[in-house]
């Protein structure tokens, strides 16, 4: 087969695979909308009590319930919400009166700032350290590096966040403790140090759990690949160790990539604790406020958008894995 034929065949297979995965994503998305709509109604409490004074009458509560459409049966509310949601209208926040789509969009972009930073930090460190641990599996270097991953997974990140604030903000005074700077998120840029420094502590805190998880997975994958017969063959052929590691990494990468994708999805979902500690106005901060006040439109909209992000991330990872590893494509 010539090179151009191979490329054409590859593209065809990739498109077919991508199309299949996108079609699979549709029922997942519908399932997500049903679950995210239904879940918020299962929680105890009443969204109206946060809008009313403590001694408001039942008539006032009924007035508001009708105004917001909460007096209708849940399936009717769901159908109306879904029809609006497919046009990009996720309703209006009960608490702020602002469109949910703009509330969620702003929060999501803020969370992406720190999750992207955390992803880059965690992925790069975890991949290097995990590869080293896998290569030296069973030896003291492996044990030392594995301890790092155990710490990453075990240390409660809200505690770590507070410790980092105390050390770097309060004691040393080198990094800010909270927020996104004096201009807020409106003009935030990672390329401006005066603003970017606000993201450093949240990024470090957020990166610890994925660092530990990805490192452990990388270690296991590398160690497994290195135990294969083909590695013995490579060594027998006199290939230098750096080349052996390169082959091991290439073989282990698709497996690690899947874990990375999952972790990125979790990070984009925001961390209620970390974003609250750092007063970082992301999706976690938004969700915690919406949960406490039973701001149902915001909850439904935020969960939907985040779930879709998660589905999209997994889809992208699947496609990437397919591009990297022809065995998956053939399967």
């Amino acid at each position: 087969m010539t090179s151009s034929c191979w490329h054409a065949e590859f593209k065809k297979l990739m498109w077919a695979y991508a199309g299949r995965r996108i079609i699979y994503a549709v029922p997942i998305a519908i399932g997500v909308t049903v679950i995210c709509f239904g879940l918020v109604f299962l929680a105890p409490g009443d969204p109206m009590v946060n809008l009313l004074p403590p001694d408001a009458s039942p008539a006032d509560a009924a007035y508001l319930r009708k105004l917001y459409g909460f007096d209708q049966p849940v399936p009717v509310q769901y159908a109306k919400w879904l029809l609006r949601a497919v046009t990009g209208d996720l309703g209006t926040s009960l608490q702020t009166g602002r469109p949910v789509i703009s509330e969620v969009g702003r929060a999501l972009s803020n969370t992406i700032v720190i999750s992207l930073g955390a992803v880059l930090l965690a992925f790069s460190l975890a991949f290097v350290l995990g590869t080293l641990a896998g290569y030296y599996a069973g030896r003291p270097a492996d044990r030392a590096l594995t301890a790092v991953s155990v710490v990453g997974v075990s240390v409660p990140n809200y505690w770590l966040g507070m410790v980092l604030i105390i050390v770097f903000s309060v004691e040393l005074g080198v990094l800010p403790a909270t927020g996104m700077g004096s201009a807020g998120s409106d003009t935030f840029s990672l390329f401006n140090w005066e603003q970017a420094k606000y993201a450093i502590l949240p990024v470090i805190t957020l990166s610890m759990v994925p660092l530990g998880i990805i490192m452990r997975n990388t270690r296991a994958a590398i160690a497994e690949v290195l135990a294969n017969d083909f590695v013995q063959t490579l060594r027998a052929k006199g290939l230098p160790e750096t080349m052996v590691i390169r082959h091991a990494v290439r073989n282990a990468f698709p497996q690690v990539l899947a874990v990375m994708g999952l972790q990125f999805g979790y990070l984009v979902g925001g961390s209620i604790l970390i974003e609250t500690i750092f007063t970082w106005p992301g999706t976690g901060f938004l969700l915690s406020k919406a949960i406490l006040t039973r701001d149902i439109p915001v909850l439904q909209g935020a969960i939907l958008v985040l779930a879709m992000c998660f589905v999209a991330t997994n889809l992208a990872v699947d496609l990437l894995q397919t591009a990297i590893d022809p065995r998956i494509r053939r399967a």
């Binding site: 507070m162 604030i165 903000s169 909270t178 750092f278 007063t279």
Partner: peptide
């Protein structure tokens, strides 16, 4: 966080 922000 409020206390840390004041101290910082």
């Amino acid at each position: 966080t409020r206390a840390a922000a004041l101290l910082a």
